Amino acid sequence: MGLLERMSTVVRSKMNRIMDKVEDPRETLDYSYEKQLELLQNVKRGLAEVTTSKKRLELQKAKLTQSMDKLDGQARESVASGREDLARLALERKAALQIQSQSLDGQIADLEKEQQKLIAVEGRLSTKIETFRAKKETIKAQYSAAEAQVKVTESVTGISEEMADVGLAVQRAEEKTESMKARSSALDELLEQGALEDFSSGDVLEKELNKAKASGQVEAELAKLKEEMKR
């Protein structure tokens, strides 16, 4: 496969995906149904035209039959009157009309066949369209239900994602809280061990004075104990 052919395949694939997003199958089904109805109307229109043409020819044939009957009567009267020349003329005209009548019979027969064919086509097409209409409505209902389900699922998915974000935020807050508590405990422990000075209980000078006072008391008590031990 050449480069141009591969590019063409990729473009067609992307266009198909775009069309899938844009195209609504319900609209496509409705459009197909409308086109079938138009076709049915064309068949009915053709059937009406054929029927009208056949009827017109039948009327012409009826007029020819009347004319032939009249000419036949005139020929009989002419023979009865001894006017064979007039009888011959009437019969010649009758023969010409018979040729036209036979031609009309052929045309009427052809139109009759065409009429029956169109009637059959109309019946089959009407049945097909009705079947398509019922199937179309079923598919549209199924598509609408599926579309609604997708929207619900997407909505639930969005809620789940939001709840996941909330849960993550809570988890981070708990972790920070535990970290802060651990840090506070560590600082308290360091303060108790004397590794850190607690500046919150007084200034430095006061602390040093307290230490000196406490040291003096310790020395005094130690000296007192020594004196008692000597006795």
Rank of each mutant, 00 (worst) to 15 (best):
E122A: 15
G194F: 01
Q149A: 15
L190D: 14
R76I: 12
T9W: 08
A173R: 10
A186K: 13
K213Y: 07
T153F: 07
L3A: 07
E147Q: 14
E34Y: 03
E227H: 07
A134Y: 03
E208M: 15
I119S: 14
S215D: 11
Y31V: 06
K151S: 07
L37C: 10
R6V: 09
R83F: 08
I139Y: 08
E122L: 06
R133Y: 07
R183K: 11
Y143M: 04
A95P: 00
S67C: 02
Y33S: 05
D105K: 05
L222A: 15
K63N: 10
S201R: 11
K35M: 13
M15K: 11
K55C: 07
G167I: 05
E189W: 03
M1W: 03
K176N: 05
S81V: 01
L104N: 10
E130D: 14
E58P: 01
E112A: 15
E77A: 15
T177V: 08
K213D: 12
E122N: 12
T52C: 07
L39M: 08
Q66D: 15
E161Q: 12
L37T: 08
K44I: 00
R12V: 06
M19Q: 11
M229D: 12
A169D: 05
K176F: 02
E122W: 05
K224R: 08
I139K: 10
K230L: 09
M7Y: 06
K136T: 13
K226C: 00
G123I: 02
K128Y: 11
G82F: 00
T52K: 14
Q74L: 13
K94V: 03
L125H: 07
E162F: 07
L64W: 03
N210H: 09
K135N: 11
V156K: 15
Q100G: 02
E197S: 08
Q142R: 11
A145T: 10
R231D: 07
K21T: 10
A182G: 03
K35I: 10
I139N: 05
E192G: 02
E38C: 05
A96G: 04
D85E: 04
M1G: 15
L104Q: 05
T28G: 03
E175D: 14
E122M: 10
K117M: 06
I119G: 02
N210I: 05
A87E: 02
V156C: 00
S81R: 14
V170W: 03
T65L: 09
L111A: 01
I119C: 06
S179P: 00
T127M: 04
L104G: 06
S179L: 10
E5M: 06
A148V: 04
G194T: 02
V43H: 05
S201M: 04
D24T: 01
E114I: 05
E161S: 11
K35V: 11
I18E: 05
I139A: 09
L4H: 04
Y143L: 05
S200F: 04
S13T: 11
V22F: 03
S103C: 02
M15D: 08
S144K: 14
S185M: 13
